[in-house]
Deep mutational scan, measured.
Amino acid sequence: MQRVNMIMAESPGLITICLLGYLLSAECTVFLDHENANKILNRPKRYNSGKLEEFVQGNLERECMEEKCSFEEAREVFENTERTTEFWKQYVDGDQCESNPCLNGGSCKDDINSYECWCPFGFEGKNCELDVTCNIKNGRCEQFCKNSADNKVVCSCTEGYRLAENQKSCEPAVPFPCGRVSVSQTSKLTRAETVFPDVDYVNSTEAETILDNITQSTQSFNDFTRVVGGEDAKPGQFPWQVVLNGKVDAFCGGSIVNEKWIVTAAHCVETGVKITVVAGEHNIEETEHTEQKRNVIRIIPHHNYNAAINKYNHDIALLELDEPLVLNSYVTPICIADKEYTNIFLKFGSGYVSGWGRVFHKGRSALVLQYLRVPLVDRATCLRSTKFTIYNNMFCAGFHEGGRDSCQGDSGGPHVTEVEGTSFLTGIISWGEECAMKGKYGIYTKVSRYVNWIKEKTKLT
């Protein structure tokens, strides 16, 4: 034993070699072989497995989906700052455009905790909710729209109204504003409101030439003092309507412009014939205590009207009353817009006519005020429907199939267009061939041609 100890002390290297040989010859039971080890760690190889990531292109799944990435790591994937920024906006807080917040056709661009709407022409605001041009839906104005110097929408209202708090709607500024039905039992019968379409306001006024200088022999019209197929109006439903009495009662109609003036057809009036105007009328054979009678003290036909040349060209006249009318729910003026808007309103496509005229061709006159909704007829169809001249200051309205029309005794009465609950004068009943005849239409004086003249002559002093 002493000898062994001496050998170990003198030859430590020998001992180490012996131990190493023993270990190498022993069977290893701690580690699995290569094949079995792979069965336990069965993990798919990654895209760049075996390579240094710093030297390969980034992978979106590896960089940002398996674990949260930084902007720089995302930049490695896209290799483009702009594309990385677009991805980053949604990656950080989701897609803010998912709810489609942009209105009126706006395009949404996502941002971090926010979004941006790219608005089409005519709109602005956070969600493109603000109209900035009158060309689109009248700028959301209830009545009139004008573009300011910086191309912003400025709404306005006709006389007797003021802008509401929203700067879009119009509200009454006087007790009985024009064009409004205020009798409670008839307010439910107000005709369907007309909503502004998209309009090209630059070209809204037709490029028409008034044929002022045409000389033409007097034409022989049949029954051209021209509501057939209409309905009984309720008291106060058309408070701007008046009836004219002269040699015979209810020979023509008219509309209240203001307390002192009536507008009617020029062919209705004769110099030297006494005319009485009755406002607030409903049943011409009954006294309903809503009527107001006034005498006409002055007749002003349009300066281009000449019955000797043509009885229905420039067929418009103004009547001055001896005493002002007292405005109330049964006696209310009709609204008159400017030339541009009167023309736009007419193009809405349908209007209402009213009167006490004959209820059928050569038949009896109506006792109760009649009204009828009539569609506008395109000019080409209008011209083809008659052998008589249709001037540019006239328009056609009615039904091709016949059966409904204005008729004798309705002449001078109103053709009105309702705009968001307020009625505007767009025409004056003038003439036609018979009444409600198939293929024939009622012919009306186009008020847009005469609004400046009306307003100039009827100013209240």
Rank of each mutant, 00 (worst) to 15 (best):
S99N: 13
V174W: 05
G357D: 11
C170V: 01
V202R: 14
S49P: 03
F196M: 10
T271K: 09
K137E: 11
L367P: 15
F221N: 10
K126G: 08
G349V: 02
I316L: 07
M65H: 09
E433P: 10
T84S: 06
W356C: 04
R294H: 02
G179P: 01
A397F: 02
I262N: 00
I262Y: 00
A436G: 13
V56E: 00
L211F: 14
S350P: 10
A9G: 13
L369N: 10
S329K: 12
G357S: 15
M437C: 07
H361W: 07
A173P: 00
T194R: 10
N59Q: 06
A233H: 06
S107F: 06
E129C: 03
P175E: 14
S11F: 13
R226V: 09
I275G: 03
E116S: 15
E434V: 09
I40Y: 09
L41V: 06
L20S: 02
L372F: 13
L425T: 01
E401S: 10
R3K: 09
G412L: 12
Q219M: 15
N36D: 15
L211V: 13
A250N: 13
P175S: 10
Q96V: 11
F251M: 08
V195M: 11
F251L: 09
K455N: 07
S148K: 09
L32K: 13
I15L: 08
A173L: 10
M394I: 08
E98Q: 11
V242F: 00
Q370P: 03
D131E: 14
K168L: 11
F238G: 02
E82W: 04
T458C: 06
V174G: 06
V277S: 01
A26G: 13
R379M: 15
E72H: 05
D315W: 01
D111R: 10
F123V: 07
V227C: 09
V202G: 10
K362F: 05
F395A: 01
A337I: 01
R46E: 02
F399N: 10
G398K: 06
L211S: 13
V153S: 12
N328Y: 00
P235R: 09
E79D: 15
D378Q: 07
H303L: 05
W118L: 13
A173E: 09
N295E: 13
K347L: 07
R180E: 02
L211A: 15
S406F: 15
A233K: 05
A279S: 03
I7M: 14
G50A: 07
R404K: 01
Q237I: 08
Y330M: 08
C102R: 02
K339M: 13
T29I: 14
C157E: 01
V227R: 10
E259T: 06
E86W: 06
M437W: 11
Q143V: 02
V296Q: 01
K455T: 07
D111H: 11
K387F: 05
W431I: 09
E323G: 04
Q408N: 14
G432T: 13
V353W: 03
V154C: 06
L425H: 02
W240N: 00
E434C: 10
I214S: 15
S49W: 04
H400I: 11
Y391R: 10
K339Y: 08
D150S: 11
E129T: 04
Q241S: 06
T461Y: 12
V154S: 11
V92D: 12
I210C: 09
G122W: 04
N452R: 09
Y352S: 09
N258H: 04
I262K: 00
S354M: 12
S423F: 15
E171H: 07
E231T: 11
T290K: 06
D93F: 08
L369V: 07
I256K: 00
T84L: 06
S204I: 06
K51D: 07
W453G: 00
S255P: 01
T271F: 08
I214Q: 15
T458N: 01
D150P: 09
F78I: 09
R373P: 10
E66A: 05
L244Q: 01
L321A: 01
G236F: 05
